[in-house]
Simulated scan of single mutants.
Amino acid sequence: MINRTGKTIHREFWENRLVEIFDEGDTRSLYFGGRYLQSRMSLSSPHLLSLLYTHYMMFALLFRQELRNILLVGLGAGSLVRFLHHHFPMCSIDAVDHSPHIINLARGYFQLPESSNIHIHCCDGFRFLANTKISKAYDLILIDAFDEQGMSAQIYSEDFFSMCANVLHPSGTLTCNMWSGNTQYLSEISSILNTCFTGRVVLPVPKRGNVINHLRKQSVDWSDIHRSRQELLTLLEKFNMNFPQMVNVAEKHNLNLGQRMMQLFSNFSLH
């Protein structure tokens, strides 16, 4: 159990799991099992993304900022739904979570938006894709299906990612949050992703165990990522996320030394 100085506003056990919600100043946090932080929200600005790994998931905005349809598997406390609905209110969002308890917590304590453009589905993400007749293509698919035990084995599987590829827009992005202490397991999932998708950008989150994967049906066009510094700063101001830092991380972990040097010289030539 982690010692906290905030106020406990909710505490219960369900499915042999301790669930707690704490308020400390302007921050509200959801914990599982007494020590696993699941989500965090600013009470005064609930649309802001408070956890760094969620910023790295929204790196996908560099590929496509015109969003019409979004699929989110793993609702949590609704951070990504709040962010996306705030910035893209006309976008249709399908948010899927297997737990009615989680959905109720997101609605009751974490200001989950109510809108005709937000569709909450209480079911398993695998079954949602397998059993739902989907007539639209998703511009962005976000996979964040975790609990204190780690990644959902059924979600992080070849069958599931193949179904995701089938409903992803040709120029869309699938963003997948990965974390595990088992390097062999992570390697197996990486191989699956390479089988199902052509383009891939890997973003390890600094000082965290999360590795965010951005997958494309087509090869990654790095001109989408190599924006001018002014463009990246404009995005930083608009979305309150450090896009210049994320681009540096993307270059470091996805380009070889020669490619990085070419990009550096290209940047100099633009000034």
Rank of each mutant, 00 (worst) to 15 (best):
N210C: 09
N210S: 11
V211D: 08
I212V: 10
N213A: 11
N213W: 15
H214V: 06
L215F: 11
R216C: 09
R216P: 00
R216S: 15
K217G: 15
K217R: 15
K217C: 04
K217N: 15
Q218I: 14
S219F: 08
S219T: 11
V220S: 00
D221Q: 14
S223Q: 03
S223H: 06
I225W: 15
I225T: 05
I225G: 10
I225V: 12
H226R: 05
H226N: 13
R227H: 08
R227K: 04
R227T: 00
S228E: 03
S228I: 01
S228N: 00
R229G: 04
R229F: 06
E231W: 07
E231P: 00
E231F: 05
E231M: 04
E231H: 05
E231G: 02
L232V: 11
L232I: 03
L233F: 13
T234Q: 15
T234L: 11
L235T: 04
L235P: 01
L236S: 14
L236N: 09
L236P: 03
L236C: 08
E237S: 02
K238A: 07
K238T: 11
F239P: 10
F239I: 10
N240D: 14
N240F: 10
N240T: 12
N240K: 10
N240M: 12
M241I: 10
N242Q: 09
N242L: 01
N242S: 05
N242T: 00
N242H: 09
F243R: 00
F243Q: 10
F243W: 13
P244D: 01
P244Y: 02
P244G: 02
P244F: 00
Q245M: 03
Q245G: 03
Q245C: 02
Q245W: 06
Q245H: 05
M246T: 04
M246K: 01
V247A: 06
N248R: 06
V249A: 12
V249M: 12
V249Q: 07
V249D: 12
A250F: 05
E251K: 09
K252Y: 05
K252H: 08
H253K: 07
H253Q: 07
